[in-house]
Simulated scan of single mutants.
Amino acid sequence: MKNDGSFSSASVAGRLAGKVAVVTGAGGGQGQAAALLFAQAGATVVACEINPKGVEATKKIVSEQSLNVEIAQVNAADEAEVKAWIDEAAARHGAIDILYNNAGHTHFAPFGEMSLEQWRETMRYELDIVFIPTRAVWSHLVTRGGGSIINIASVSGMRGSEFLGAAAHATGKSGIIGFTRQLALEGAPHWIRANSISPGPIVTPVTQALLETSKEFNSCFNGWPMLARTGRTADVAFAGLYLASDESSFVTGANLTVDGGWSAKGGFTPH
């Protein structure tokens, strides 16, 4: 697929000045990109990651770039861990303004081969992992008088995929989209905005590994977008920055696709 260099980029200084942002799953890929971009935009970022190697990787970048990002090893699907982590962050910084729910994990397998254990674990790490941080931060946003919740869903939650094995993933991400709309409704009286982002074919460490090992996935992944390139983590992070900022103060209950046009068409696009 053609790469013409037209990846998302812009000057971000000051767009989140004075805000405190909580980011889950920030040890690499899309979560790390969002945490770094939010800090570059002036936010104080409190991030977590379950993998200790991911924690260290993000710490290294933060140190090199002198960014205001705190990252801790926290399992975002563990209610007690998350509540303690978020309550401490709110006490330390005085408030929380933004929650960016990026953390997640899924099992891919053809439906006839998927076990109940794989299904249940996917539901935990697609749905519980969004519910738990949101529940923990909710009272802090109410006290603050509003804020922005951004949940990472997927185009897989909106349509079927030619690449087999996404039944559990599609169910979880579809659930996130529905959950987000209900949050928007219940949060509106408190000026809490809730939106989801549905990425399409984004190159991350996980998808890169599949691109290198599966010809079938490579064909689907590169043929999905209308635009003549696949996505990068920055494309998703910039969408998150908009939803986190006051620029989107009249946007709630939306599901923003970042997919190069994939969800607006059918079939493959030859490039």
Rank of each mutant, 00 (worst) to 15 (best):
T180Q: 06
I192D: 06
R181A: 10
T233F: 04
I150C: 02
G160V: 15
L183N: 07
T213G: 01
W224Y: 15
P205I: 13
S196Q: 07
A188L: 05
A194R: 04
V142C: 07
P205D: 08
G240I: 00
R229H: 15
N222F: 09
T233P: 10
L227S: 08
I149T: 04
G187H: 07
A184V: 09
A234H: 09
T207V: 08
L211A: 03
L164S: 15
R144K: 08
G200C: 05
S156I: 06
Q182A: 12
A168D: 11
S174T: 06
M158P: 01
F221K: 00
V155N: 06
Y242D: 07
I150Y: 02
S154V: 14
P201Y: 04
I152S: 07
A168P: 06
N195L: 00
R159S: 01
Y242P: 02
P205W: 14
A188I: 10
V206K: 12
G223L: 00
V236M: 06
G172I: 13
D235I: 13
K215L: 11
F221I: 06
P201T: 14
G240L: 03
R193N: 01
V236E: 09
E212A: 14
S148I: 12
I192S: 01
H169V: 09
L183K: 05
A188M: 10
E186S: 05
P201A: 12
V203N: 09
A237F: 14
S174C: 08
P189W: 08
I197G: 01
S156Q: 09
M158K: 14
A234G: 14
P201D: 13
S174M: 03
L141W: 04
N218M: 04
S196V: 15
P199A: 03
G223V: 03
N218A: 15
H190Y: 12
V236A: 03
L227F: 12
S196H: 09
A234T: 15
A153E: 00
E212H: 05
A184H: 02
G157M: 11
F163V: 13
N195H: 01
W191P: 00
R229C: 13
F179N: 01
L210H: 06
E162K: 10
F179W: 03
L211I: 12
C220A: 10
F217I: 13
A234V: 15
G175P: 02
L164Y: 14
S174D: 12
A228D: 07
